[in-house]
């Protein structure tokens, strides 16, 4: 697990939270907060995906489907039903998890990576087309606009508002969700389930011989992963307040997230956060070169696959390992 979590993951997480809080009290301009908000949402998406892709070792490529399901369902229920987004996001996450179960079932029977990759990709295409075709409800590619933001929260005199245009509130909200999910995942991975995931990734046959029920575990991991991604999609929907099927479930979303995961470090717990901050941040700086954005994402993915396959998080681990080989070994054998 040390390979996944790095050393002292709780400390790393605390430092990240402290930095997050520090930024929230500093006079940071709204544009920077906007970028950080998007990074946190995408980091959450990537963490959810990372659960199957890196940690469980199932090479799924269709998690943007769950993002879209979470986003659209939450938006639809909030928009048409007048229900508060504080509630509808959970419905979005739940439906995404359910969809994860649905697509997880056929995948479980197949161990072959190409099958898993292609079937999940095809599923994402189905989802994109469904939202695009249900024009009466979603307005298709014209865009589903008017999605309500999260209801404001009041503490005595101060009222925190959310949604695009309310940068500070949105930033704090995205951070709160992201770190809550990270803390939950950290607890999970350090407990028995974490060991089980590691065992399954290392050798399915060996895990099975230890009496681990592969189907149940993989299905549970899949549903959890889809649920987290769905939640991030729902939060995204009520932040940007407009959705199009192509923007949430199109190939650009796939490559953006793949780049985040590969650059950050597939299978590394903190990889998604590093990747999301680096990519969303640095590429916003290159905003004027808008048309080169995807070119750069493509080049980054190729570059990292060749030069640093474990991403930024992997680079850090590599350095620590060399410096303290003995300590690492003791820890991992104790784990």
């Amino acid at each position: 697990m040390i390979e996944v979590l790095g050393r002292r993951p709780a400390l790393t997480l605390s430092v990240c939270v402290a930095l997050f809080l520090l930024i929230s009290v500093l006079p940071v301009n709204d544009y920077v907060l906007h970028i950080l908000t998007l990074s946190l949402i995408f980091a959450m998406f990537a963490s959810g995906w990372n659960l199957t892709l890196g940690i469980l070792g199932l090479k799924t490529l269709g998690h943007h489907a769950f993002f879209a399901i979470g986003a659209y369902l939450s938006a639809i229920v909030a928009f048409y039903g007048g229900v508060s987004p504080w509630l509808t996001i959970w419905a979005g996450a739940a439906l995404a998890a359910l969809a994860g179960l649905l697509i997880g079932l056929p995948i479980l029977r197949i161990r072959s990576m190409p099958h898993v990759a292609i079937v999940t990709l095809a599923f994402a295409e189905i989802v994109r087309l469904i939202f695009s075709n249900l024009k009466d409800i979603t307005r298709g590619e014209l865009g589903f606009w008017g999605i309500p933001p999260f209801d404001p929260v009041s503490f005595g005199e101060t009222t925190i508002r959310f949604g695009l245009g309310n940068a500070w509130g949105s930033y704090v909200l995205a951070g709160a969700f992201f770190f809550a999910v990270q803390a939950g995942l950290l607890l999970l991975l350090r407990s028995r389930p974490g060991m089980t995931f590691a065992a399954i990734r290392d050798s399915e046959a060996a895990a099975e011989s230890l009496g681990i029920n592969l189907s149940t575990w993989k299905l549970a991991a899949f549903a959890l992963s889809a649920g987290i991604v769905g939640l991030s999609g729902a939060i995204y929907a009520h932040y940007v307040m407009i959705l199009t099927p192509t923007s949430v479930a199109g190939p650009e979303m796939l490559i953006t997230l793949l780049a985040i995961i590969i650059v950050g470090g597939a299978g590394r717990f903190f990889g998604p956060l590093y990747g999301a901050l680096l990519l969303t941040g640095s590429l916003e700086l290159l905003r004027e070169f808008g048309e080169y954005r995807m070119l750069l994402y493509g080049a980054l993915v190729i570059g990292f696959v060749f030069a640093a396959p474990h991403g930024i998080a992997g680079l850090r681990i590599g350095r620590l390992r060399r410096r303290d080989r003995r300590g690492t070994r003791e820890r991992s054998s104790a784990a």
Binding site: M113, A259, M294, Y297, G298, A299, V305
Partner: peptide
């Protein structure tokens, strides 16, 4: 882990070529 790396690298290449063509 070459199988997944090839998938990732060729997805990157695909996007690279698409946006290259667009430019």
């Amino acid at each position: 882990d070459w199988a997944f790396r090839v998938i990732a690298a060729t997805i990157g290449l695909s996007i690279l070529l698409q946006s290259g063509a667009q430019i």
